[in-house]
Design a binder for these strands. Structure first.
Lengths: 142, 142
DNA sequence: CTTGAACCTCTAGCGGCTAGAGGATGTATC
DNA sequence: GATACATCCTCTAGCCGCTAGAGGTTCAAG
């Protein structure tokens, strides 16, 4: 029987976050002591590890919900899980491409700033005028 | 004299977002018509473009606040602006490194999923057991 | 003078947590 | 059995950077 604190340490998830996962139905309601404290078993530890690991790989909580569901039904065909992972991979690749463009632009800005007055600071100048950019870049929703 | 809608179109910023920027003090309070509608001038258009472009480069609103402030004072030394840009560059590079590790892992997952039942789906298996991962990866706060 | 697109304010919500107040419980030690 | 104190509990509110919608007003063209 594990306390929430132990679970927290074992998975690297904050206590508050575990309770939050319970609240949104990602983690099941655990057993309680007479005094009302949560007690977990190993199945729940595994589930939280799964969630945690999926988060580290960038899956959204909704995607994780689906993945957990699939994981709970070992006889279903697994192409759904595969599709979710492929979607995630695609997203990661898109984000990388965007970051690459940003890096180029930022490097150029920093490199060209000669250290004078802000009046002729290259960094600020570039920010003022997009047309100076060599690459297209659309971050914002990343 | 530009309406908020025109400003929106010219900069690619949503109307609601412009009002939000005003609310948090990033954009100045514009003039109003007798009926109470906002009217902007070109200085404000420039300012919003600056903000928008900075956002595209991934700067936080706080960083942008600083950059705008520096931009308003052309006689200050510009190493602060440079420092902000360098910080941002560093962050971008860190995020890219993390995404790279994630991509590797996701590729491996997807590649090894042979399309059977979820019971022996490689995707789910990897999520269940972090020790199968070849690389370290810590996303989450990205 | 009428239409209707664009404007206004206000509130609430998104994802994914995180922090803090204020109090109860559990366990180790005496 | 008493005491100390770490850990637990619930609840509310906040973070970032918007976004959406309700319900109402204003502006410009025809």
């Amino acid at each position: 029987m594990l306390t929430i604190g132990t679970l927290s340490k074992k998975t690297g998830t904050k206590v508050q976050t575990i309770r939050y996962y319970e609240q949104i139905g990602l983690m099941p309601e655990p057993g309680r002591t007479e005094g009302g404290q949560r007690r977990y078993d190993n199945a729940q530890l595994d589930r939280l590890s799964f969630i945690r690991h999926s988060r580290q790989l960038g899956f959204s909580l909704d995607a994780i919900r689906e993945l957990l569901d699939l994981s709970d039904h070992p006889n279903r065909p697994c192409n759904e899980a595969d599709a979710i992972a492929r979607r995630q991979l695609k997203q990661v690749e898109q984000r990388m491409a965007r970051l690459k463009a940003l890096r180029t632009e930022l490097k150029r800005m920093v490199h060209e700033c000669s250290g004078g007055r802000t009046g002729d600071c290259k960094v600020l100048e570039v920010l003022r005028d997009h047309s100076e950019c060599l690459t297209e870049h659309e971050e914002i929703g990343a």
